[in-house]
Design a protein around this nucleic acid. Structure first.
Lengths: 345, 345
DNA sequence: TTGAAAGCGATACCAG
DNA sequence: CTGGTATCGCTTTCAA
């Protein structure tokens, strides 16, 4: 009765199922059943157990539980980013929100794995291999064969955004970035722009490349030149620099497709400083529509994609894998982007 | 030999210590020792085990391990923020970086717990109570008695920033925000400002209140009026709004102490729009120095605090508690802030 | 419906 | 040094 008293004293941190069973006057097996949904337990036993649990402040030891259930009830969100700036990207915050929504509903815990490429990557992979989590969601990733490595692990996993490399071996959710880039460019073409440049995303991210490809296609289809390209890294500062470089090389630009609103905001800053009128002298279309597009001056015409929904969908796909005990059958869901018109084009 | 082959086939995801022992031709006990640092194992046994581990791609089951070790080798970073915007605050990113540094060195896993006040808070508390982690680091927190609740849990925990309520019952690391507010204000006083207002932080965060208190003290000591106060929520937009409100009410202000650089950047935006010259008509001092201060125009004179070091220190304190098996003995470490001079004051 | 008992996969004490 | 064995705390047959 010593341990029991101790258990009752400190908020139940150490009460075990055995204690509960003893206090409730039932067997451990019955106590366990009562606690887990109460299938096949008499009302009497159920309430005795409920009572004991309350009195003892009992809560199950997750290690013991997952040892036998082979489940951790937690999933990892892997962020293989070299830079802490991911956080300042609204895309990331929104994604996390979408994931959390779905996870909360199922009472699963989110474990965030920040892993800068390098030794942290190895640690992260080990963590996943050890099955510390039931599955992994990979978020903003650069060129690498993480997809292949995860597929090898046979751990349920879903990418948010089409991965590099072995994209055929894993599930992912994405938006049609090619279509998005194309639509953005068409807005400018239809508006009468004849000299359309682009500030593209990083060359090591599929989203960046796809949007660029869309821009190329739209220009080809309009019979316009596609030679004014500058790459940024999705940050505002890089957008400002890219705009400066681009205009220095091509002073005759009258349209600009920018692969993210943050970069577009940077470009806008440069243009304002240079006294270039937007959209009259130079029209701009951004990408994302995650809040910053409505706060710039003028507001950004941009390509919206349902980031939160994508993340939620990815999470659901992951949970399906987890539930089904299947780590395979690559699924993919691709969302269409939509144009949102504001003042910049 | 069936399970064994299976284990070898799928990357070792399911090889157990037993398999390793069998393949190495030693007992489970010896295998375990060899794997954990190799104390008291003969070179022969050691290499046999190493070999088996490699061949089988064995990696220990964390649930089983933590069941007996009573250790999870992971610590939680709790973020009790209602808003996803925490992420866009450089303070948070920097903090995370400091935590990660220390954790990585010890090979501990960071588990990020996002918990909006409400039902998620309960889930978070349950997670901690269940000892899913060895300890908790609480980051940006608003008014609440989380400190008291954690103290009750008897779980090793450290706050980054002095907590509300039962701050005497938990360990925390903080900067001297009162001194910081005071120093910031003195910069303006010494510069000749006679009418100094402030854009303070939220009224439900100790950092906000302390900085405000510092501002009050400095004004009292200079014999100046301390009546021009407006509160923001540490975001750029709130800073812009607050500046507008403040100047509308007190058009004669010649100095402004702002509780965060982000808000100061917002204020700067408003001033530029209004054609107010900084620092000549109105001098400004910010707070944080986490990067944005050097990117504004003019650069912000600001109060710097060693955010990364604070986070690292907090993490070390936490690990001491974890190692010592002590969840008590509230420790505190307070870092001094320093003034960084740029163009705004 | 209930309980006895067999694991789950490791660690650690204790003889040898 | 090594190996047998008792746990760790919980879930899940399997009989009763």
């Amino acid at each position: 009765m010593d341990r029991l008293n101790e258990a009752m004293a400190n908020g139940g941190a150490s009460a075990t199922l055995d204690d509960v069973a003893r206090v409730a006057g039932v067997s451990r097996a019955t106590a366990s059943r009562a606690i887990n949904g109460g299938n096949r337990v008499s009302p009497a036993a159920q309430s005795a157990v409920d009572d004991a649990v309350r009195r003892l402040g009992y809560s199950p030891n997750p290690a013991a539980r997952s040892l036998v259930r082979r489940r951790t009830d937690s999933v990892a969100v892997v962020v293989p980013e070299p830079d802490e700036r991911v956080f300042s990207d609204p895309f990331f915050a929104r994604t996390l929100r979408g994931v959390t929504e779905v996870l909360s509903a199922r009472d699963l815990q989110l474990v965030l794995l920040l892993a800068r490429p390098g030794q942290e990557e190895a640690r992260m992979l080990r963590y996943l291999r050890n099955r510390h989590v039931d599955g992994a969601l990979v978020v903003s990733h650069h060129r690498s064969d993480l997809a292949g490595q995860l597929a090898d692990l046979a751990l349920p996993s879903v990418f948010v955004g089409r991965p590099w490399g072995s994209s055929d071996r894993v599930s992912y959710v994405d938006t049609d970035n090619v279509a998005g880039g194309q639509d953005a460019t068409r807005v400018l073409v239809e508006r009468g722009c004849r000299r359309i440049g682009t500030i593209a995303g990083p060359e090591d991210m599929t989203a960046g490349l796809d949007r660029l490809e869309g821009w190329r296609r739209a220009l080809a289809e309009a019979g316009l030149a596609a030679d004014a390209v500058e790459h940024g890294d999705f940050t505002e500062d890089s957008g400002e620099r890219a705009a400066a470089a681009l205009l220095a090389r091509h002073p005759d630009l009258d349209g600009l497709v920018v692969a993210s609103d943050l970069m577009a905001a940077g470009a806008l800053r440069h243009l304002k400083a240079q006294g270039v009128a937007v959209p009259d002298q130079l029209a701009i279309v951004g990408y994302d529509d995650l809040g910053v597009a409505e706060r710039t001056e003028p507001g950004l015409t941009t390509v919206a994609h349902p980031v939160r929904e994508m993340a939620a969908q990815a999470t659901r796909l992951l949970l399906d894998q987890v539930d089904g005990g299947t780590a395979g059958t690559p699924m993919r869901v691709v969302f269409p982007p939509t144009i949102v018109r504001r003042g910049s084009a």
